[in-house]
Design a protein around this nucleic acid. Structure first.
Lengths: 217, 217
DNA sequence: GAGCCTATGTGATATTTTTCACACACTCAA
DNA sequence: TTGAGTGTGTGAAAAATATCACATAGGCTC
């Protein structure tokens, strides 16, 4: 297995990739309690996905299990990390040090998975220069310079909606290749720049819908 | 069209419901710029979904458009609000007033869509009693009491992972019917309690995957 | 009101994703 | 070494979702 086995098939469902993250988290808990080997049935019980789903998801990327035995917990963890590209650390830039930005800077989950926010930007003069969770807040004017200089490829966009597109353009121009966006509304970027949206209103509205639909005439 | 038209068919794709939220946001922007009528083609251009998808999504719930014309912007907004159950306000409870909890309390997006956080809980004595974004922080011990008293049905769970299940059990016991959960890990709840998960690590890991897969041997 | 244009609503079809079900590989015990 | 038990990997089937393509209805002009 050389380094090139990293590249999986190109017909992997998006949902599969998201489930890999969950398997990884679950494996972490199992490893902590000393488990050496785990079956798809047990992963199923722990995650709520079907055992067939678990096996299919993993089989997209290789033969990680042993028939009659299961998956080696540590080995599988390492494999999934490699697949997800988190076997090495990622440097992140954060734009927008408002309430959400501050929460993200303080959020432990990123560090645990190897994502380090090493630069933060805001255009509020009162915030610039401050240290927030160990990161210095730089003016947005320095964005391109710092991102290029520190070779950052991943950014978190936590600005108000009306500034998002403009900042995104600057990020893209500075060489950012993927963005986690918290601003509502559609953003336009070149094909090869990956954007993930987190829209809290959509999530709550979905819950509201679920509750509302229980109304039976 | 009576009030009972609220209940849609039960075979609506989950993804459709999420897209409705996006249409609603888009319609809001169009309404703000004075547009009276909008076609599926324009909604397609604005949202990035195909025109056929837009029409299909809306057609699940009724005949909202006029052939040869399009959809009345305001009328469609009202319809979608009704479908999503956000034509009236929802009261929300927030548990966990850490960095994330504070960010959520300050988040404007909820209020804009009619979600009001009217109660907040934390078990840190230093936080209890404080006002955060206009909401008083109550001790977790009062959770059941306050939720029942104020008839709250929707809760946001923003506690550390290790407390999440315990708090969830209390929320369910107190009558909560839907939960927006930010704690990582699987949660167990009765069938009729709806849970939406927001896991930021999953989102970033998906981006990492997207970037990693570009490596071509 | 006839003809033309536009854009919805929806059967039919295609694609994507999940589930089923079982052959096969591996372990263990005797 | 053989046989029983276990659990993966995967073709095939099913279910869910998205797209196509067009009949149909409404509006506009002359």
């Amino acid at each position: 297995m050389g380094i090139l086995t990293v590249t999986g098939p190109d017909d992997v469902p998006q949902t599969t990739v998201r489930r890999l993250s969950i398997y990884l988290r679950t494996l972490g808990m199992e490893a902590a309690s000393g488990t050496q080997s785990i079956s798809s049935a047990r992963l199923s019980a722990l995650t709520g996905f079907t055992a067939a789903q678990v096996r299919r998801d993993l089989a997209y990327f290789g033969h990680f299990g042993r028939r009659g035995v299961g998956y080696a917990v540590e080995g599988l963890q390492a494999k999934i990390r490699t697949i997800l590209g988190i076997d090495a650390e990622w440097a992140l830039a954060l734009v927008g040090v408002g309430n959400l930005g501050r929460a993200l800077l303080a959020y432990r989950g990123f560090d645990q998975q190897g994502f380090k926010i090493i630069a933060a930007f805001d255009n509020d003069q009162r915030k610039v220069g401050a240290m927030v969770s160990g990161v210095r807040v730089d003016p947005v004017d320095n964005l391109a310079c710092v991102i290029r200089d520190r070779d950052i490829q991943l950014a978190i966009l936590a600005t108000p909606a009306d500034a998002a597109q403009e900042i995104l353009d600057e990020l893209v121009a500075a060489g950012i290749r993927a963005v986690l966006n918290f601003a509502p509304g559609r953003l336009h970027a070149p094909e090869d720049v990956k954007i993930s949206h987190v829209d809290l209103s959509i999530e709550v509205e979905y819950l509201s819908y679920s509750l509302t639909q229980r109304i039976v005439p």
